[in-house]
Simulated assay, not measured.
Amino acid sequence: MILVFGESGQVATELKRILPDAVFLSRQEADLANPAACAAAITEHRPAAVINAAAYTAVDKAESDEETALNVNATAPGAMARAAAGLGIPFVHISTDYVFAGTGEKPFSPDDPTAPLGAYGRTKLAGEQLVVRAGGPFAVLRTSWVFSAHGGNFVKTMLRLAESRDSLTIVADQIGGPTSARAIALACKVMAEQLINNPEKSGIYHFSGAPDTSWADFARAIFEMAGRAVTVTDIPTSDYPTPAKRPLNSRLDCSALSAFGLARPDWRADLAQVLTELGAIS
């Protein structure tokens, strides 16, 4: 049995579809604001592996609430990882491209120097470090630009705006790989299952959709595929200020995924599936 922290988020929702026999812990059952309770849940359930699909993901809010973000994104995963290590079971943890400064144009490798630009990235990096330090079998899966038919994300925002707008200005100098929550869920499943018998595969991995694109071009693809007549005008990040700085380069080198037989998913195919599920295309 696999134990999953998170129940209603984008990745957790997809994990429910592909892991019908897993046990999912909601915030009421295991609140990441209470790290000791999360660790106790692992000891109580004694699963074959643990996937942490819960996190504090409000990037801008974290700038003024870093203490809470640190507890959820670092202290709790650290406690979980130590509990899993105590049982000798794998712990799979989802992280983010925000651990990097986002400079240059080269895809970031898992062992490249980290330099988060804001509170969210700092708390996620702290979580990674605690998971590694726990000493058990683990996989940290850094991903980017998550989208699905559930929750709040860029695809759903673009479809909503298309209902009342025929032109939009979208940031074009941030480059990364849109990644479907379903693809991330499948990767977590594969990693958890393989780590049970092959703990030597433990490490930090990158996973993002291909090909790399800009937010503006991602928006164009959404509108074209959904048949929405919306004109997209490119703007620089400087024209769209936010409380938290965004990395300009979110390209991730995902080649190490071959250790698990995984490769970068085509986000265009995944986008078509999501738009179909949302009823945006037939």
Rank of each mutant, 00 (worst) to 15 (best):
S8K: 15
Q10D: 14
E14C: 00
E14Y: 12
L15S: 08
K16P: 03
K16S: 09
K16N: 10
R17N: 04
I18P: 14
I18S: 08
L19F: 09
L19P: 15
D21M: 07
D21K: 15
D21V: 04
A22R: 11
V23I: 08
V23M: 14
V23H: 14
F24G: 13
F24R: 12
F24W: 15
L25Y: 11
L25I: 01
S26T: 02
E29C: 09
E29A: 14
A30Q: 10
A30G: 07
L32N: 09
L32M: 10
N34C: 03
A37T: 05
C38F: 03
A39R: 07
A40Y: 00
A41L: 04
I42Q: 08
E44Y: 13
R46W: 06
P47L: 00
P47G: 03
A48L: 08
A48G: 13
A48V: 06
A48Q: 12
A49G: 09
A49V: 02
V50C: 04
I51E: 01
I51F: 05
I51V: 11
N52E: 04
A54P: 14
Y56W: 14
Y56V: 00
A58V: 06
D60E: 10
D60S: 13
K61T: 08
E63K: 14
D65A: 13
D65C: 08
D65S: 12
E66F: 13
E67P: 04
V72G: 08
N73E: 03
A74Y: 13
T75I: 06
A76M: 05
A81I: 02
R82H: 14
A84K: 00
A85M: 07
A85W: 11
L87R: 11
G88C: 03
G88W: 09
I89H: 09
P90S: 08
F91I: 03
S95G: 12
D97L: 03
D97F: 08
Y98I: 04
F100C: 11
A101W: 11
G102F: 01
E105S: 15
E105T: 07
K106F: 09
P107G: 11
S109Q: 14
P110I: 03
P110G: 06
D112G: 15
P113C: 00
P113S: 04
A115N: 15
P116W: 02
L117H: 11
G118Y: 07
G118V: 01
G118A: 03
A119R: 12
Y120S: 07
R122T: 05
T123C: 07
K124D: 03
L125Y: 09
L125D: 08
A126F: 07
G127C: 05
L130F: 00
L130A: 13
L130E: 13
V131M: 06
V131Q: 04
